[in-house]
Design a protein around this nucleic acid. Structure first.
Lengths: 344, 344
DNA sequence: CTGAAAGCGCTTACAG
DNA sequence: CTGAAAGCGCTTACAG
């Protein structure tokens, strides 16, 4: 009652025009193989003539399937998430699904709110990031019976199918590479000030590799920043060198911070990599195109997005998916790293 | 029938628990001021006890209002759109709306498909980018009676409310600034190879300002690239200087391309800005933090996103909005521009 | 293979 | 201010 659309054409109009029942018209569109050729033809013809387009809300209400997937990412400001979301959306669209998107700003409370809204909207599936959520989230999602997959990590401790990389192993390998180049005086810039289990794992991997080499970093050699931004990287590096000029290698948990550190180092008269080696993580565009091009770890964000889409669609349609999907995150050696100049 | 949720609690359960009719329960939630205090209390209590959360699809179907807004942007790979979308989503959420997002990859056909899908999903409003669409788009949207606003431009030739900047005036002003610095030998790098009316307007503004100064750029001084990427900017600059070393100023339609050009210039042994002035457009992070920091034009992407959200919500709820909202796009002078060294 | 009918979970005139 | 009932536009057992 009281709808604005006086003349919006609906399925019953199509049925009438095609001289079939509403049920048959519906079937002709949704399970064409089940309705006889000539009839299907008539329905298709009527659809075309009347310019019918289905009301997906009504369809969702009666079928229990919305063909909507919800995703909540920390921020689109990080290219790694922007790329992942873009790939996710493309793949979902290709499979007939539409994307509901929200960003949490690294705030678990906001994340929970958004998830709640998505659930109320009847999403068929949910893609999240990482493996730490507000306590209500998982029970809520499960109570709704909505499948979910988490991304950018390759395992979950909470029974969620995960598709991503092993952040800890990746930085461990990266750190070993620096150790092999003879570095012993390390510093770390980590964006772990906000809740971020991926960055935390990356930090862990660095610390672990150092420990394995018998190096224990004093706490003032680890600076925590809130966000992956160039400006924070800059500030962190200048703080580090103000008190501690012995450092020969700076490990960063992401590229933006590494680019900032690299740029600031040069501004301070240090030559990267001759005087100072710097590594990032993510392999976003500025890493490759910076000056010097940054040694970093590649995160296959679009692959993650695509696979997440495929998995969700597949489980919604009754399929099985692996609980853990680990994508390769290779070290990309470029020009921001070199042998230590004068090993201590 | 045949729904998976055996025990999902619905409004009728709430009504029963609160000892009121379904209608009253509905009103208590949607128009609380219209139901008497004690009854409202009982309903709210029941909601809490049962953990009721509304089914927005059902609500949408019967009320004709989905509380969903759809947005389609060219790409999230451009920070300007990522930021705008983020702000849009935040503001929509704050006002009780959810965002359906798609990216078109600068393809009008894909854009049309996504809009079609959004319409089928019953969006209450649509936010688009620019002022050129596949021919079917506008009639389709109007036929559905869905309000829309377009962004990143400040006027529409097609009767769509627009909120954004005047791209043409902004580059005109930017170009005049370079002219005042004494430059006469210009080149332009424009990402106009793909359909992009914003970049086209920016290019127009540059050409116009030059014409006003009596300068007519030969066509080989204008290089068109497809996307706003650092790599394209690099390539464009090296192509330009391979044949034409007289250039003293390079105008770019966006920052990514300008950063690439700047970086490549330095690689070629040119000092920016001493030998070559370069300007970008957008004022994304790498512009401010690059080396040298880039002179550019600020695009208030988050403001655009916020206003688009407010406008849409306001018209959905019966309000009026201006047809044209022009935000300021000031020139940000940094270190990539200087007086021409030896004016011709 | 096709049709008549019930139902998805809400909202909202219409009466009272 | 509250309730009974119709209706939103579809899908899908159930019969035939």
């Amino acid at each position: 009652m009281s709808h604005r659309d006086g003349g919006r054409v609906k399925l019953v109009d199509v049925a009438r025009a095609a001289n079939v029942s509403l049920a048959t018209a519906s079937r002709a569109l949704n399970q064409p193989e089940i309705v006889r050729e000539p009839i299907r033809r008539r329905v298709e013809e009527a659809v075309r003539l009347l310019g019918y387009s289905p009301d997906r809300m009504a369809r969702a209400l009666s079928s229990g399937r919305s063909h909507i997937v919800g995703a909540v990412v920390p921020t689109l400001g990080n290219a790694i998430f922007a790329d992942g979301v873009e790939a996710l959306q493309d793949r979902l669209a290709a499979r007939g699904y539409t994307l509901l998107l929200a960003n949490s700003q690294y705030d678990p409370r906001k994340e929970e709110q958004e998830i709640r809204a998505f659930l109320e909207h009847g999403v068929d599936g949910l893609v999240l990031v990482g493996d730490s959520f507000a306590p209500e989230v998982l029970p809520l999602v499960r109570q709704h019976g909505v499948p979910l997959v988490t991304t950018y990590v390759c395992t979950s401790g909470q029974g969620i199918p995960a598709v991503g990389i092993d952040n800890r192993q990746a930085t461990r390998k990266m750190t070993r590479y620096l150790l092999e180049l003879g570095h012993r005086e390390f510093a770390i810039i980590a964006n772990t000030a906000l809740p971020n289990d991926r960055s935390k794992a990356r930090l862990d991997g660095m610390v672990l590799a150092l420990a394995e080499a018998g190096i224990r970093l004093p706490s003032d050699r680890i600076v925590e920043v809130a966000l992956p931004s160039i400006a924070y990287g800059r500030r962190a590096l200048s703080g580090l060198f103000a008190t501690d000029p012995a450092i020969t290698a700076v490990l960063c948990t992401n590229d933006a911070v590494a680019v900032g550190a690299s740029s600031e180092a040069r501004r301070m008269g240090l030559n990267v990599p001759r005087d100072l080696s710097i590594v990032g993580f993510d392999n976003i565009e500025i890493a490759a195109e910076g000056d010097p091009p940054l040694t970093t770890v590649n995160v296959p964000a679009d692959e993650i997005g695509r696979i997440a889409a495929d998995y969700l669609v597949s489980v919604v349609e009754g399929g099985q998916i692996p609980m853990s999907t680990r994508l390769d995150a290779p070290l990309i050696v470029r020009d921001s790293t070199d042998r230590v100049r004068s090993p201590t």
